[in-house]
Structure formats: C-alpha cells, structure tokens
Design a protein around this nucleic acid. Structure first.
Lengths: 226, 226
DNA sequence: GTCTATAGTGGGATAGAC
DNA sequence: GTCTATCCCACTATAGAC
C-alpha cells in the first residue's frame, strides 16, 4: 500500500488521478473488469503503470470510484420522487428503481465486481469499515424514504426500518446482478412485488398478533448492526 | 476449459485426481486459498502443474470438491434431529446449526471462498446451472424439515417454504462468514432468534389479515425460482 | 511532491512435445 | 496423461528526472 489514498492533492495530481479513474471506468464498461489490465488503464490515461499504482494501491481500489460515482447519481435520481410522493410503498419503489436504473449501464461490470464485494475481509464489502461512510449515507437515504412518508408505525419500527430497507436494497441488487432477462425486467417485477409486501408488513406491524414476531425481528436487526 | 470434468476416469486417473484434491484441501486449510498456489498443490500431489490443469480447468474448480464434501457431512449431521424432532422451529434450528457446525473448521477458508461463490457468472455461484444438483439436494433437505414437522400451514406455503428456507440458510451462511465473534456465537444467536421468527410467521400465515401480503410474497418466490 | 522508466517476482494458465 | 517451457498478468522496487 504505497498509494496516496485520501491525502489532499494538488490540482495537478487531482487531474492525473481523475484521468486514471476515467480511463478505468471506460475500460471496465468496454471490456469488463478482468480484461481491463492496469497497463491498459495507465496507457489510456497517459501515465505510467507505476504512476497509476502511486494513486491506487491495487486494481481493486479503483472500484471504490465506481461506488462513489453511483452513490451520487442515485441520490440525484431519487430527489424528485422523494420530494413529491408521500406513500411509503411508492417512495420505496421509486428509490430502489432509481438505484437499478443508475447502475444499468454497468450491469455486466457489476456482476464481476460482486466477486470482490462479497469477500468479508475486503474493503469493498458493503459491511467493511472502509465502506462505513457509504453505508451510513445509504441508510440515511432510506431514513428519508421512511420519514417523508405518511405511513404510521411504532417508534421501534421507525428506528430500525431504514437499516432493514438498506439490507433489502442489497438483496435487490444481488438479484439484479444475476438477472439475465431483457432490460432486467424481472428485477423491476421483483421490486414492484416486494415493495408491496414491505408496505403491507409495515402496516401489519401495528397488529397485536404480530407483536412478538416483530420484537424478535427487531432484536435480529440489533444483532446484525453493531 | 481443457480439463476432463466429469468424464469417466481410468483407475489410474482417478488416483491422480484424488491426490490433487487431497493436496488442495490440505493446503487450503493450512494456508488459505490464496496462499495455496497451483504449483504447491501440484508439487504436494506429486504431479506437474500442467497435469493438475488437465484435471481441473482452473484453481476455482477445485473448490467444488469442498462443496460436495460439505453437503455430505451436513446431511449426516442432521439425520438425528430430523428423525426425532417434530416441532418445525426445532427442526430448522437443528438443521441450520448443523450446517454451521460442519463448516466450522473451514471458517477462514470459507470467507475467502465466498468471493467466488458470489460472482453470478461463476459455476461456483449457488444459483448457477452447475450448482443445480447441489441446490436441489439442499432444498430437498429443507423439504424434509417441513414435511416431518407437525406444523400446520396452507398448501401454497408448504409448497414454497423449502425454497425460502434454503434462501434463509444462505443468508445465515453469509452472516457466518462475516462473523468474527468467538466460536461464532453471534451466528448461533442469530439462528436461534430467526428460527423463532420463522416459526411464528408460518403460524401467522394462516391469519386472514396476512393473506394478501402472503400471496404477494409467494409470488415473489415464483419470480426467484424458475 | 509528482512522475517515468525499467527490471523483476511470482502467480494462473496454456502449448505442444512425449 | 504427463511433462517442460512459456506467456501474460498484478504488483513491487528502485533510481532518478522535474
């Protein structure tokens, strides 16, 4: 690990760094992750391979750039639904659909990428400490999905639901990377079907019969988080 | 892909193949997946690296051997609970606890391994066509968990529950590979907490209020399977 | 601090002779 | 079926130019 990581960069360095990132993302989209070698990326960026490694300690580290780009685009893509819609199910559907739409151009790339994200020890894992800021940002988005809705629920549910919805979005993403249907229509079907269930379960969460199962479930979330 | 895959082997070839597998599993346990190079594996097996590649098209392919070994051990480890217990929750708890117990010696190895299983295109993915026999066998086991219980449920639930439980076991496994607690106690806590929820949800599934959410949920499973 | 050039390590995987 | 030899890759090391 000899890269400059998150240090403050001079304008010149920033430019070089950006060139490497752009070249990498281009090549990933064009030829996939494995076929895009560090030699190619450096060459297209107009720098030496050694210089590329000066900025990014490994080929994997470049993937983080894909993440942050996506996170920003997703936020922008949700803004409208979250500003206008008040139904919880509709807000959730809009948010998760936007997530998939934003990632769509990188469908194939995302598939090979999951390989690295799934490794528990990897900094690319969504559960890793390195991913904590991105994770918190995502959960905050789902908190906005919940808070901006007119749905009524218990305080305990309201507290934990954003995390659960974030986990839910991971599940949808996992399905999406496996989805080979045209235009990923099956993923959209899955979203439409599951957001309905989520909405109904949230409503049902106020029923006394489900109280026990619910508090058990929330205890599980406690187990998952800290 | 130039390996001999599932072709019928002469006794001599069978012996060579077995030696390679044994060397690989030993080295994986001793030093982990990445540190066990194909050169090492071949050397310990007493063959050339080229010969190892004659039997296994890639390093990843050797992992399949770990899977089949595990599947067999898990089946054996569940037999007692499934023969004696009739409560659905208890049957499920016993089965999933057995799964984790069987994999325990390979905890570290399994973590690095998940990297390959998570890649959708990989034959190692639990959803891949190549994994279909193993998947069917697993689902059959969870069907036995359901069928052997005295729990009452609708025909539609009974039909789809085994698949759901298999997915559930994948989720537990995913948590387990991330679990760094001593003796993986947190995973066992998670199992104990979630099997209760599952049992309660199955009971609750007969309530009319949940009918709509339930049929939606089952439709989701349809979407996931075929 | 930013970058080049180059030489080298050791890994997965393959070709082709035997 | 088995080997030897080889390829190309990610990645490292280093010496030095600007």
């Amino acid at each position: 690990m000899t890269d400059v990581a998150d240090a403050v960069l001079t304008p010149r360095a920033e430019q070089t760094r950006a060139a490497i990132v752009a070249a990498a993302l281009d090549l990933y989209r064009e030829r996939g992750y494995d076929a895009a070698t560090m030699r190619m990326i450096a060459e297209r960026a107009g720098v030496s391979t050694g210089n590329a490694y000066y900025y990014f300690g490994s080929k994997e580290e470049l993937i983080q750039e894909f993440y942050s780009r996506n996170q920003a685009e997703h936020l922008a893509a949700c803004r409208e639904v979250l500003a206008t819609e008040t139904d919880l199910t509709a807000r959730l559907r809009g948010t998760v659909r936007a997530l998939i739409a934003v990632m769509a151009p990188y469908h194939e790339f995302a598939a090979t990428l999951y390989k690295y994200a799934a490794e528990p020890a990897s900094p690319l894992s969504p559960f890793s400490p390195q991913s904590s800021p991105a994770r918190q940002a995502s959960i905050a988005l789902y908190r906005e999905v919940v808070e901006g809705s007119k749905a009524r629920m218990g305080a305990d549910v309201r507290e934990r639901l954003p995390e659960l919805l974030w986990l839910y979005s991971l599940g949808i993403t996992l399905y999406w990377v496996h989805d080979r249907s045209a235009g990923c229509e099956r993923t959209y079907q899955l979203i439409d079907a599951t957001v309905e269930v989520v909405g109904q379960l949230v409503s049902a969460s106020r029923l006394p019969v489900l109280r026990k199962a619910l508090s058990d479930l929330l205890r599980v979330v406690d187990l998952l988080s800290p």
